[in-house]
Design a protein around this nucleic acid. Structure first.
Lengths: 199, 199
DNA sequence: TGACAATTAGAACGATCGTTCTATTCTGTA
DNA sequence: TACAGAATAGAACGATCGTTCTAATTGTCA
């Protein structure tokens, strides 16, 4: 890895952390230069524009998300265990400083068309597809009932995660984590075949 | 209403619209002055600081939410119909320009302590309490089962709404509305007494 | 109607934004 | 080791941010 790519990577790592807290547009080239020990222009040269930096930050976030959530969860056994692992690691991911990058960025960019938004939409869609796919596998494994709507399942799972974020990080509800797990357990219980719907 | 309060109100109405689209910190005094036909300083004098303006915008949003969602829904019959009305009007509220103000503002302010955040938290908590209260009434009316956890119900309802917002406004999923209603129907079905859990 | 207060405009402030130059320092290779 | 190109620094740009003055205008009530 050349010197340039090396510092570029260091910049993005810090940029991702900052943007998780203050948002994509709250991330400023001046502050980022300060915190990485570079000059504004020196840093700027790595990206060419703020918009390109934003895109790179989104891609860095997606990269880290894959490493922290998807890769480990996909090592779990197919079916319900994997669905549960995906969810658990997702929740853990949302506990880092500034909360889930994607939750904040989605709300920020939903009315701002352009490359950064496009990159973020792609990442989120991939994630939803991954959740639905895991649910379909659980159906195939017999853990979930045959007529389960996997995309509907992903939609509702996503909602639980968003609600967790809202109650935990914003409302500071001390029972947020407990509510989140109850909601997940309830959702999974109704996804199981009628014969296994105990709990 | 004096001239001052009159223009102040006109400013806030426009400010709320703008902030719904570009966020609270995206709302700029210069732009707001431009769109209301006032000078920057003339407008500024009504609030004294940007932070005070932000608080006023949050309060204006809460005022409009009460009028558009809560007041009409509370005229519906107690129990499940009222729960349904609250949810339906909530979804409709989220379809205005820029989506639900509170969804965007919550993500924006969750890491920014201060009066604007405090005002927003109060408004959101009031709303969660209202949802839980409606669920408790539905229990009392016999529409929902006696051992229902009303706060858990409100948590999950909130999640469905947030997921709707994400899938509709951000991911542009054409089935977002259908998924939202399915999720709501499923949630309500599991809230009903076992004897009435058809559907 | 006249006078006092409330309201608005206009100009300017320092700070910071993204961006563009030019110049300097560093790195990798022949 | 010398040289070409990559990487970084520094200064400056116009624009816009929130804010503070002072001055002019307008509304309100005796």
């Amino acid at each position: 890895m050349s010197k340039g790519e090396q510092t570029r990577q260091a910049i993005l790592a810090r940029a991702f952390e900052i943007a998780s807290v203050v948002g994509v547009s709250g991330l400023t080239i001046g502050r980022l230069a300060e915190e990485t020990g570079l000059s504004k222009s020196g840093l700027f040269a790595h990206f060419g524009s703020k918009e390109a930096l934003d895109v790179a930050v989104v891609e860095e976030a997606a990269r880290q998300f894959v490493q922290a959530v998807m890769v480990p969860a996909l090592r779990e056994p197919r079916g319900e265990p994997r669905v549960r692992a995906l969810f658990e690691r997702w929740v853990t991911w949302g506990q880092r400083d500034g909360g889930c990058f994607f939750v904040g960025a989605s709300a920020e960019l939903d009315d701002r068309p352009g490359p950064p938004r496009d990159a973020l939409v792609r990442a989120c869609k991939d994630w939803v597809d991954e959740l639905a796919k895991a649910a379909r596998i659980a159906v195939r494994e017999g853990h979930f009932r045959a007529d389960l709507d996997a995309e509907q399942f992903a939609f509702e799972l996503y909602g639980i995660m968003l609600s967790y974020h809202q109650f935990q990080r914003f409302l500071h509800d001390p029972t947020a984590t407990a509510k989140t797990h109850h909601a997940f357990d309830r959702l999974v219980a109704t996804a199981r075949p009628a014969s296994a719907r105990h709990r």
